[in-house]
Each structure stands twice: as C-alpha cells, then as structure tokens.
Amino acid sequence: MPQLTQWFLDRGISEDILLIISFIPILVTMTSISRYIFGIKTFGIYSPMVLAFSFYFMGARQAFIFTFIVILGAWLIRDLIRRMQFHYISRIAIIYCGVSIFMLISITLSTFISSKDPFFNFGQLSIIPAIMIISITDRFVSNFIKKGPDAAVRLTLETLIIAILGWALMRFEPTRYFVLNNLWLIPVMIFVNYLTGNYTGMRWTEFIRFNQVIKNASDSSND
C-alpha cells in the first residue's frame, strides 16, 4: 500500500471515508464528461454522486428497487394531487409525505416476502443511503412539473446510468484499490475537468440529433 494511503489509515481515517473522498472527484468528473462529451444530462451533479454512494453502501439491487419505488411513489402522488390547488412548496411537501407513506407500505409489504427471499427485506435498510435516495424526489418532481413526465423519466434514467457506472467502479475491486492506492488521481481530476470545461466540439448525442443537418452539409459540398 502506498505510503500516503497508509499514512491516512494510520492516522485513524477509515477506509470507507477515504473511499468516499477519493471517489467524489471521479464521480463528479464522470458526470461532467457524460454531459459535455457524450451529451447525457443528469439531475445536476449531486444526484448521480449520492446515488452511486447509496448503491455502494446499500447494495445495488436493493438500492435500485428502492429508487424505483421512490420515483414511482413521487409520480403517483404527483398525479393524484395534480388538479388540487396548493402553494408550490406545500405541494412538494405533500409529495414527500406521500412518498414516505408509499415507502412505509412497500417496506411493510416486503417483510411478508422477505421470509421467502431475503433480497426483498427492506426493513433493515441503511438509513443514510435511503435518505439520499429519497432526496432525489425533489429533483424528479421539479423536472416533472417544468418539463413533463417524459423529460423527468429520461433524466432519471440518465442519472441512474451514471450512478450505476460510478457504483460499478467502486464495486469492482481492481478499480477501487487502484483509486485508494493512487490518491494523486484527485488533483488529476481537476486537470481532466479543466480539459472537459474547455471542450468546444460536438457532444456525441448531437451527431445523432443533427444528423440531417450534417448530411445536408455533405450533400451541398458534394454538389
């Protein structure tokens, strides 16, 4: 183990803390690259990061189902109160309350299944990752209201993709140990973001989006 990492551990810093600190720059860099190079948007930079950590600490399959239940709950409650008149913050608060009830029902139901399959046992979930997942409700509902259901679902999917990639990097032992043992990667990420921040080329998805325009430019130049 490299001296720097060993030194941190000797000072009493836990491996989990070191893992979180060293992976934060990598996860946010992934979000930044996915947006500016590939053209995949997320619910900001915070959501994919906390989801990735939640997936890691909660266990991916359970966290994934938990996220699905939260999103589904938010959607249903939002639809239920759509025609009712409330102030904006009160509306969001009601949706949170609804999601809590929905979660409670889901968790209670899971205890009936858990006797047969421990995978569905949500009764003993880690609380902090669970709160992290619930906190994306706000972003989901806000996008749902402003951009419509299609955009909200798509952004959720895109956020989940980045989160799962981040989780995979942390879960895969060689990459996890590589990052833990090479803490110099943290300043390197600043440089990577500097390059990404100055990238002015087309995003990959724009090649598909503007396919007709590009094709037309080609036809004109061939004339």
């Binding site: 002015t200 724009e206 090649f207 503007f210 080609s218």
Partner: peptide
C-alpha cells in the same frame, strides 16, 4: 450513414451546445 471521418468533418458547420456556450 456517413463514414465517421466525413461526418466529423461536415459537423464543423454545425453549432453544438459546447461551442455555443464557450465561443458565443
């Protein structure tokens, strides 16, 4: 679909979001 190199070359006439933000 155009060959990739040709497509990248022709895409230089198109304004992407990165270019719009950084250059204009």
């Amino acid at each position: 679909m155009l060959p990739i190199v040709q497509m990248i070359k022709n895409s230089r006439q198109t304004l992407g979001l990165n270019h719009r933000n950084a250059v204009y």
